[in-house]
Design a protein around this nucleic acid. Structure first.
Lengths: 252, 252
DNA sequence: TTCATATTTCGATGATAGTCGAAAGATTAG
DNA sequence: CTAATCTTTCGACTATCATCGAAATATGAA
């Protein structure tokens, strides 16, 4: 019988490019069909089926049968967190086409992270709420202030419902693209839902990137004092283009 | 040119059993030589060298030359955190020998997690400090109370030095074996160092598991009201033995 | 029922990558 | 200097596993 190394088995679920792509699609926290994931990863349905079987068996994803479709999603917030932490270590993506360039910036500008808002906009909104004394950041968590509670209730968020959820309320989540914290937990989720309802942001098909609507830009500015602009061509900003370097990585 | 998926590349570093073993050895946060890691993983030095090259290139580990030795260690606390989060998802280890049984329990009883204490003892100590109002736990972090500051200073810990470090002070770290939080960050590190100095715990060779000395048992009891006993044969406790199950893992 | 769609199972293939032996490079001890 | 030790480089072998075609299964539509 062969020796098994649990850590390696867990990592093996994500070390394969096709599986990694599918999982990144699943990072939006929603259900996706097997075929949808196959197309996203650029593989045939039978291959995708094979991968999804492995991932459900290891309890990384869950499946729900509904008619002739099978809907897959990540099985837990811990799984999503684990993947995000891997993304923090992962090397930056190499840009080889204009399409990839656009995607690179779109996903960094605004995206969903499991069930809350992330990217430039996610971090900016979090920091704006902190500056407005809606949130307090201490160590690695956020706290909703009394003032903040009133503000967010006025904004249309059911804070007490979010507090009752059996999960973290205002967790800190390290944003892999911004390398700073954004708000997660049930409060983060509630805010994302509210932003979608208000149509300040809109989900885009086939991607976790989300679009900030014109109304959203106005709203973010008026309510949170946020100037939300997507400027991928800002010559000062990070274009995502990296010189090829070989690093030996030796210390001292 | 081939397309790369950064997430997959990061996961690939850990998906190989030999590499996973080496990395788990490195989880103690200290330096290890290439040969040491090769022996630990049960492979030849040239294979280990090959793996270590890959891991340094991806910035998961760092290397420091010193004479004819090369000392390797994890490159960052984030890397350690990422690995720990993978361990939370990883399937439980299968026990096949008495030696493995002992190791299974030793590592769960008390171990170092990067640079702080983890396992049953790590979690128990953290919770004892919380119960003694040395720490306050709110959301996903800990706070040192005024009383706690005095207590720990009396215990011989330089709290102000720990506060000055450019890293989290009292982070929550999810313990993969206990599935509960233990104290991490610079304070967690300072406490581990103090426990080692006092010889309440002792490092063991070739493992991250640590031993609680007789003096340590008395000390934990007197200072923290902790009854530290290692009882791997407790019939009520988790023996680590799992029935073979096949799970289809389908919902509803 | 019959057809269409979604998904899985099976089997074969091919590429990737972990492995080790041999040998060279680097550094210290004597 | 020479010998010994630690580590890396090179080359070849081999096992693993992702992949897809073909076909089966399951469900819904007509």
């Amino acid at each position: 019988m062969k020796e098994t190394v649990p850590l390696a088995e867990a990592a093996a679920l994500l070390c394969e490019p096709s599986r990694a792509k599918m999982v990144q699609c699943l990072l939006d926290g929603r259900f996706h069909t097997a075929t949808e994931l196959a197309v996203y990863a650029g593989i045939t349905p039978q291959t995708a089926s094979h991968h999804l079987y492995k991932m459900t068996e290891c309890n990384l994803v869950q499946v729900k049968k509904n008619g002739r479709h099978r809907y897959y999603r990540l099985s837990s917030a811990e799984a999503a967190q684990m993947i995000e932490s891997l993304l923090c270590i992962a090397p930056p993506e190499k840009i080889r086409s204009l399409k990839q360039f656009d995607r690179y910036h779109a996903i960094r500008f605004a995206r969903t992270c499991y069930d809350h808002l992330a990217g430039k906009v996610g971090v900016a909104l979090t920091e704006a709420m902190r500056d407005l004394a809606i949130l307090e950041q201490r160590e690695n968590c956020f706290y909703l202030t009394e003032k903040g509670k009133l503000c967010l209730q006025e904004f249309g968020i059911d804070v007490t419902a979010a507090l009752k959820k059996r999960r973290s309320f205002a967790r800190c989540c390290l944003d892999w693209s911004e390398r700073r914290y954004h708000l997660a937990g049930s409060l983060g989720h509630a805010i994302l839902e509210r932003l979608l309802t208000l149509e300040w942001i809109r989900r885009l098909p086939h991607t976790r990137a989300v679009q900030v609507t014109e109304e959203g830009k106005r709203g973010f500015s008026q309510v949170f004092g946020l100037d939300v602009r997507n400027e991928p061509f800002n010559p000062i900003g990070d274009t995502g283009i990296r010189p090829e370097v070989n690093r030996k990585g030796e210390l001292s």
